[in-house]
Write a protein that binds this DNA or RNA. Structure first.
Lengths: 245, 245
DNA sequence: CGAATCGTTGAGGTCGCTCAATCATAGTGG
DNA sequence: CCACTATGATTGAGCGACCTCAACGATTCG
């Protein structure tokens, strides 16, 4: 079976669990007719109860959290094939909002569907746990970056990681990939002010490490940027052989 | 059945899934005879492959990550009942080290046991997913704090959360709880230098918000500290009714 | 009692912030 | 086709939070 021909979610889970035909069709039934969400819209708001999870079919999303003083922290950026909001379903109250960065096409998975999946499809459930864990590894990397990397290295590291993620799903290469993130969103992601991020991006450009233009990231020398960013984790690439047959 | 009499893990999962007797005994069989780990020892080192997960029976642990420049970021602090390292099992390579903050008593859960659990015990598996999600909510809160809270609020917030976690497992109250964390560890947790953290703790003490002494945290006015910390999430307390019967 | 570890304090530097203004870019209605 | 507007990007100046270096107390333990 051609993995690449599968819908994004089956393709992602298939990287971890060797899915059977019945499981693939189960996943297909699970994903209702996709819904279009315009850029800037919140799919789930902070504190909302009784919401669902969403599988991204196309477009970019993000999870974020607001603070009392008006500050905003983007927790993660979600790409096609990613599932947003599984954690919130299980915790029942959303601890963060989910938002469409670009126009989005998503499939909704209700809480009931998710619980049923766990009762009936333990292998898919394991795949879901893996997907959640993999996304948490990204959050951890993010945490480490914000806690212990300066703005320059933090930004470089994030953009390398983003490029790798896009490469994995066939939407670009680390050397050159589309990136619809506004500087303000990237700043809220990296825990920087938009103004300082702008200076950081200029510095990276002047150092010949990368160019972040409207809608596109270009990396002239991937090895050099990777080296600079201290990007040594293989949490993204090392896992692409199923462990469950 | 008296939930409080169960071993820590069953007690924790039982908060989410109404465990059946057979499931409880399954969990008990799963947890081998606990092993003692002396304070300061690493249970799992960064990059290690073929490691296991560990259920804490007693003591405090933490997950951390080192950076090329010698910096250290503590990702989360683990208390009795917490499971450390589930994510690393699924990702196969540990993206962080696990360490004993105090002397520790832990039960080891091998990868094979975990996979078998998912094949045979979907309800427990769902509980595990919930536990992972709940711990991820802590990491997210941590990320938000480091990204968007200043040192004073960040420290206050973390110590309120820690008090609540201990209160939930009956090891203290928010007003007064034992805390074996050294200032250096707390600093690595909060993304601060040990020196600055020391000044922050002095400030909090002088403001009458909390006293962090060797081994113990005392909060004179919980409501005031909670207010100061901007602690409004209920991700810890809102979930203590099983959703799966 | 010595040694090691941990905590505390001072002085000075820097990274990243805020405030404020100017410059693109793109869409919009006349 | 062109003001006009809205949004986003860029730059400067000044400030403050947090860091580093260095030294000195306090506590614990063999």
């Amino acid at each position: 079976m051609d993995i690449a021909a599968l819908p994004p979610l089956a393709r992602k889970l298939g990287a971890f669990v060797a899915l059977r035909a019945s499981e693939i069709s189960y996943l297909e039934r699970l994903q209702e007719r996709p819904v279009a969400v315009p850029a800037g819209t919140d799919l789930v708001t902070e504190g909302q109860v009784g919401h669902a999870a969403y599988v991204i079919q196309a477009g970019w999303g993000c999870a974020y959290r607001m603070l009392p003083d008006g500050g905003r922290q983007v927790i993660d950026v979600s790409l096609p094939g990613d599932v947003m909001g599984v954690r919130s379903i299980l915790l029942r109250t959303a601890d963060h909002a989910l938002s469409a960065v670009t126009d989005l096409r998503v499939s909704r998975i209700s809480k009931e569907q998710l619980l049923q999946l766990f009762e009936e499809q333990p292998r898919i459930a394991l795949g879901m746990l893996w997907a959640v864990s993999r996304d948490e590894a990204l959050v951890v990397e993010h945490l480490v970056g914000i806690g212990r990397r300066d703005a320059l290295h933090r930004t470089a590291h994030f953009l390398v990681e983003l490029g790798l993620r896009l490469q994995l799903i066939g939407l670009g290469t680390v050397a050159r990939y589309p990136c619809p993130l506004r500087q303000a969103v990237l700043a809220d992601t990296l825990g920087l002010s938009a103004i300082h991020l702008n200076r950081v991006l200029r510095q990276l450009r002047e150092d010949g490490l990368l160019t972040f233009t409207r809608g596109q990231v270009i990396v002239p020398d991937v090895a050099r940027l990777t080296e600079f960013a201290g990007y040594d984790s293989d949490y993204l690439t090392a896992v692409h052989t199923p462990i469950l047959r």
